[in-house]
Design a protein around this nucleic acid. Sequence first.
DNA 1: CCTGAAGACTTCAAAGCTAAAGTTAGGATC
DNA 2: GATCCTAACTTTAGCTTTGAAGTCTTCAGG
Lengths: 185, 185
Amino acid sequence: MPETQEPSGPQEPSLDEQIAAYQREYGDLDPQVEKVVSALGRLNRRMNVAYGRQVAALGISNTEWEVLKTLVVSGAPYRLGPGELAKRLGLTPAAMTHRIDRMAADGLVTRDRDENNRVRVIVELTDEGRAKWLEAMRMASSFEEDLLQDLTAAERGSLGEMLIRLLRRVEDAQPDAGGRLKDLD
Amino acid sequence: MPETQEPSGPQEPSLDEQIAAYQREYGDLDPQVEKVVSALGRLNRRMNVAYGRQVAALGISNTEWEVLKTLVVSGAPYRLGPGELAKRLGLTPAAMTHRIDRMAADGLVTRDRDENNRVRVIVELTDEGRAKWLEAMRMASSFEEDLLQDLTAAERGSLGEMLIRLLRRVEDAQPDAGGRLKDLD
DNA sequence: CCTGAAGACTTCAAAGCTAAAGTTAGGATC
DNA sequence: GATCCTAACTTTAGCTTTGAAGTCTTCAGG
């Protein structure tokens, strides 16, 4: 064998290694800023993977769970039109149509024409959909509690407060709440 | 006209409205935890939309930018195999193959067989790819500085530190760094 | 050597998304 | 009340990703 220099193969760089690399390649970088941003991105990716696994155990995908959440948040009687759903989820109406097709086929929602205005369609959560949401919610909130376990109440408060300040700043910078999401960091 | 009860149509709920809705529907929820998690998710989505817009001005997509970043972080001579790239980006090898096809066609990377081991392929950043990365980096870091503008240095430090603690906790909980990303919150 | 097995992509078929064109109902105008 | 316009989906075509099957080196035995 010619060479065995890579015992376990290259590893994904740790956050610190990644930031150090950025600093080498781009001198103007503020390491503190980069640390916050990179941690934010990585944390979110990991969390989404975790959510995906959890809801998969219920036989639904992460995207389906998003729809369930949106309907539940809208409050009883858990009805929204495809257009409104698409706006809130950051999808095109076309994608929403297909997503509703699948979820209706799975019995998670119903799709009906609004009798008062036959151009509109009403998507409504079924009992089964609501039950799935509840199970997912239980898993998610227990996961989230566990995630924040090491933070004191004061830290949680301050963390939430800072995140909301950042959120406000992004939203002010780009008034259009919508926008396809497509990619992650 | 029968009714004009919806002047501007339904709006996406604010973060507080969303959390209030969850509390109504799920009594066991800890509002403080939910606030952190929801803000995290929303912030990330908004940021990704913002990044996408910015790099679009350079003629690249968010996904292409991810590849450029990964190669740059790997350090000179900016080479990685498709498999390793796929692992770091959370994609299947198949997707990576296609992505490299497109980026090579655009002149952002080259794809060559490793002469020492002809099973392996080497993807290498071109000068043009590196230049694109640099431009994107400039835009991104200025956006990020602006985003964190309202936070004091102490706050930035504490925010970063807390996020890293959370990150560690997720990573410990699920050792497998990989995993498709697919969905967002 | 020759064969078998493992590793590293690539190819193929199918799912899911986007952009743009197509439908259809409601309301406005004359 | 006929025509036009707009709104709210749905349909169509094409692209990106996934999962599974296929190809092509390399290495290990026999």
